[in-house]
Design a binder for these strands. Structure first.
Length: 882
RNA sequence: GGGCAGUUAGCUCAGCUGGGAGAGCAUUUCCCUUACAAGGAAGAGGUCGCAGGUUCAAACCCUGCACUGCCCACCA
């Protein structure tokens, strides 16, 4: 098998992603002999194409799924997409607009045809990109929030809630987006700082020359004022309470009232109350039985206002009203003022709070249960710190406005009885799957369906149930086996929009939480720490990374940056690092595979002949424990780092290098023995790495003569006492090798030049191990011969290394720079002195001796002892250098 | 206004239940040593944001402060 010198991911990745999909490798069925491990993917909007957020989230989920497969679970990861309500309708509206088509000209039915056409043509883009990323999703189960089955689920849920009286219709102040032409829920509003003004306006008192000054950011809404409110404890205004003022421009009489919510220190302490345009004002109006006058319509234009203002936009009206108030002397002053303004989360248009008839879901009971479930740890957040925000949000949650004035979405399954002329009767509306045929109230037979559709997040909230057919049979085998799912993985931006609501609905309809764990990961930011966005132009396209560095590199970079719950910055460097790692894996494997040429029947043989064998097996086992723990606790970054470190610095830098001694042996049995361990360790690392880097590991796994599918890992299930003594022994040898290399490097001795070494034994306990493994020192420090002795004097012109247990002389006649050597030793001497100082101070501290654990005291004593020996030897040698 | 994170080498970040400051990149020197120059070997580089406290011992625990970022909230 020829392997190229540089890993060429382009030749490898495509075939594997295709193989996994075609052969349904990740299809799961109910299997009662195996434990399920289930994830439902956060359904991506059909408007979306793969961005870093998706790449991160899906990589993490895939890692978990593939890890569970290694562990022998029956893992299932369900793919799907979301119809995306407003977002999608907006995209298609814009496309139509380019063709000069207006949705109202088309009409609802024709427009929806266009929507479906668009969704069928482009809605699955994201799914094919997930296939490219190698995601181990069960492609037999692709679901869409608006497909037939999911639509049924939505109707079923709605009807149940409606019949329980939890869904109701009412006229309330809602967040209205004038561009989208729909109401929004509270969390669909985002707040931005905006520079504006605070206008101080005189409201004259009736039958008096006196007046009260109010301060407002929205003078144009004054036509809807139905009171002026002050704080009851505000001495300035006590005498004005109950008086009547004349609203300028309109000449309406309104009362001065008191309300505890008024902040005395803000503005003038007097608030104009406009119940139809502001949530606070609306509350005040409710408490004080004030009239509500609508002054802004759904297009954002003024209504119920004096002639000159009718149909002006908010902006036009504001300019006009300010100008007129100024001219008529009512404007007292204008202050610069910066405040938060609500914006539509989809199109950033300023939100108008306005009175509107909408459907609401009463969430108070569901919220209590959702909080309880998390308190009882039925669902656990990772990291746990998200529990608090989740709880706080649910505690303060107001009823959910679930109706949207859109066409794209689940049409509300409520039917109104109508008379022959098509007018709604007073009969009770009916919620049902199909249009009713008969009205129980008046025996009528004509019905019309509600015009509104449901909030997108209503169907998303049902996702963990609806993908398993809850709507068809609440007791079906699949649902019983796969629900509750094991973990939900998502970014923190949709904890409220989605996560909390799934818990509410899961508890409501299934009487059980939708998932046991919630894994919240951070957001990918650019190298300056900024959120990636199209408008900032700092978006890194994962597809470009995939074609430049490889998918495994993308995945490894994301995995190792995904520190639990924290946002991460990602730059070109992280992908380079990951690509280099892939190349390292490739080349180490290549070395082993080249050495397997001509070897027949290599069997698994873990007899350890040498220290290095014991050592690498011990290190492998230690690594597997750490990696397992990390994967299981969603510390994906830790797992990646451990594997990187083990593979590169332990396996490649030390074990493979040491294996070369035996690899060059004429004796085939010797070669077979070391190869057996090399292959064993490699295969195990490939397995452990396969969740993160499935492409390259599968490729090498197969080149090594294994199956196409990476086998379940025995190592992960092994439980044994690990013999770690080999790790300490190796440490001694590594110390010696490194100190000899340092001398070579400092003295600029060419690697081709072999030198001899004299070991003066200071600690007899160390002698045997080093003697037994002197070949390691020869091989890695390029030493020709080693002589062990006691009390030998330093040969002239030799360099000195003092290690724990040995004083080593390297005779370097003609190569050594005595002055340089003196400097080097002086530096070491200083370090030893510092060590002596630190440890002595500790040991002279009575309190330390009294209170520190014995083990710690012994350790410090040993350190002091070692440093003393070292210093003494260094000084001797410094003297002899003259 | 409330809450939550973060602040460690020039950069990006690790550092678990307190006990000798780590990695990658960048940088310096040497090396194309027969897996890998996308590599190997060695080196330099840090009063761990500031100030207190607890402790024999603090990057780690506590308190306060500063700065940065995010989330929530009905000061018009």
């Amino acid at each position: 098998m020829e392997m190229e010198k540089v890993y060429s991911f382009k030749k490898v990745e495509g075939k594997w992603s295709e193989y996994w999909v075609k052969n349904k490798i990740f299809s799961a069925k109910v299997d009662k002999n195996k434990k399920p491990f289930t994830i439902v993917i956060p359904p991506a909007n059909i408007t979306g194409s793969l961005h870093m957020g998706h790449a991160l989230n899906t990589t993490l989920q895939d890692i978990i799924i593939r890890f569970k497969k290694l562990q022998g679970y029956n893992p299932l990861w369900v793919p799907g997409t979301d119809h995306g309500g407003i977002a999608t309708q907006t995209v298609v509206e814009k496309l139509l607009k380019k063709e000069g088509i207006n949705k109202y000209d088309l009409g609802r039915e024709k427009f929806l045809e266009k929507m479906w056409q668009w969704r069928n043509e482009t809605g699955d883009t994201i799914l094919s990109q997930l296939k490219m990323m190698g995601c181990g999703l069960d492609w037999n189960r692709v679901a869409f929030t608006m497909d037939e089955s999911r639509s049924k689920a939505v109707k079923k849920a709605f009807i149940e809630l409606f019949n329980k009286g939890l869904i109701y219709r009412g006229k309330r102040l809602v967040n209205w987006c004038t561009r989208c032409g729909t109401a929004l829920s509270d969390i669909e509003v985002e707040y931005d700082d905006e520079k504006s003004s605070l206008w101080h306006i005189k409201y004259p008192l009736k039958d008096s020359n006196d007046y009260i000054v109010i301060a407002t950011t929205r003078p144009e809404t004054m036509f809807g004022d139905t009171a002026v409110a002050v704080n009851p404890s505000d001495d300035r205004y006590k005498k004005l309470l109950g008086k009547t003022v004349i609203l300028p421009s309109v000449n309406r009489e309104i009362k001065i009232i008191s309300d505890y919510s008024i902040d005395k220190s803000f503005g003038t302490g007097a608030l104009k109350v406009t119940p139809s345009c502001d949530a606070v004002d609306n509350e005040i109006a409710r408490r004080n039985n004030l009239k509500v006058i609508d002054v802004i319509d759904i297009n954002g234009n003024l209504i119920n206002v004096p002639e000159g203002y009718k149909n002006l936009s908010v902006k036009e009206a504001r300019e006009k009203v300010v100008k007129e108030l100024e001219e008529s002397g009512y404007l007292v002053k204008v202050e610069d003022y910066s405040h938060k303004v609500g914006k539509c989360y989809r199109c950033s248009t300023t939100i108008e709070p306005l009175m509107s008839e909408q459907w609401f879901l009463n969430v108070s009971e569901m919220s209590k249960k959702a909080i309880e479930a998390v308190n009882e740890k039925k669902t656990v957040f990772h990291p746990e710190s998200w529990k608090r925000p989740y709880t706080l949000w649910l505690e303060n949650l107001r009823d959910w406005c679930i109706s949207r004035q859109l066409w794209w979405g689940h049409r509300i399954p409520v039917y109104y009885c109508v008379d022959e002329k098509g007018n709604k009767t007073n009969c009770k509306p009916i919620a049902s799957f199909e249009k009713p045929t008969h009205c129980n109230c008046c025996n009528g037979t004509n019905f019309v369906q509600d015009e509104d559709v449901l909030d997108t997040w209503f169907s998303s909230a049902l996702w963990p149930m609806s993908v398993f057919g809850w709507q068809d049979d609440q007791n079906n085998e699949e649902l019983k086996y796969f629900y509750p799912t094991s973990v939900l993985s998502t970014g923190h931006e949709i904890i409220y929009l989605w996560v909390a609501r799934m818990v509410q609905f899961g508890l409501e309809f299934m009487k059980d939480v939708p998932y046991k764990d919630v894994f919240i990961h951070g957001i990918v930011r650019d190298k300056h720490g900024k959120k990636m966005s199209k408008s900032l132009g700092n978006v890194v396209d994962p597809r470009e990374i995939m074609s430049k560095y490889g998918t495994d590199a993308l995945r490894f970079a994301l995995a190792s940056a995904a520190a639990s719950g924290r946002d991460m910055q990602i730059s070109e460097e992280s992908f380079l690092l990951a690509r280099n790692f892939a190349n390292k894996i490739w080349n180490a494997s290549r070395f082993i595979i080249m050495n397997l040429e001509g070897i027949e029947n290599l069997e698994k043989d873990l007899r350890t002949v040498e220290l290095s064998d014991k050592w690498i097996l011990a290190e492998l086992y230690e690594t597997s424990l750490k990696v397992k723990k990390a994967y299981e606790s969603y510390n994906i970054d830790t797992a990646s780092r451990e594997l990187y470190d083990f593979f590169w610095t332990k396996y490649c830098d030390w074990y493979i290098e040491l294996s070369k001694i035996r690899m060059t042996s004429e004796n085939i049995q010797v070669r077979k023995q070391v190869l057996s361990i090399l292959v064993y360790v490699l295969k195990n690392v490939l397995q452990l790495l396969s969740p993160v880097m499935p492409f390259i590991t599968s490729e090498i796994w197969q080149i090594l003569g294994e199956q196409k599918i990476i086998a379940e890992s025995e190592l992960l299930n092994e439980q044994k006492e690990n013999d770690n003594s080999s790790i300490d022994k190796m440490k001694s040898l590594q110390e010696i090798i490194i100190s000899l290399r340092t001398i070579r490097s400092e003295m600029n001795i060419s690697p081709a030049c072999q030198i001899e070494a004299l070991f003066n034994v200071l600690d007899e306990n160390k002698e045997r191990v080093v003697k037994e493994n002197e070949s390691y020192i020869k091989q890695l420090a390029k030493i020709s011969s080693i002589t062990f002795a006691k009390n030998i004097a330093r040969p002239k012109n030799s360099a000195i290394a003092i290690t724990n247990g040995f004083e080593i002389f390297l005779p370097l006649e003609g190569l050594i720079d005595i002055e340089k050597e003196r400097q080097r030793l002086s530096k070491e001497s200083a370090l030893a002195k510092k060590e002596i100082e630190v440890t002595t101070t500790k040991l002279q501290n009575d309190n330390f001796i009294k209170r520190a654990p014995d083990l710690e005291i012994q350790r410090i004593k040993a350190r002091l002892n070692e440093a003393n020996v070292k210093l003494e030897k260094i000084n001797e040698n410094l003297k002899s250098l003259g």
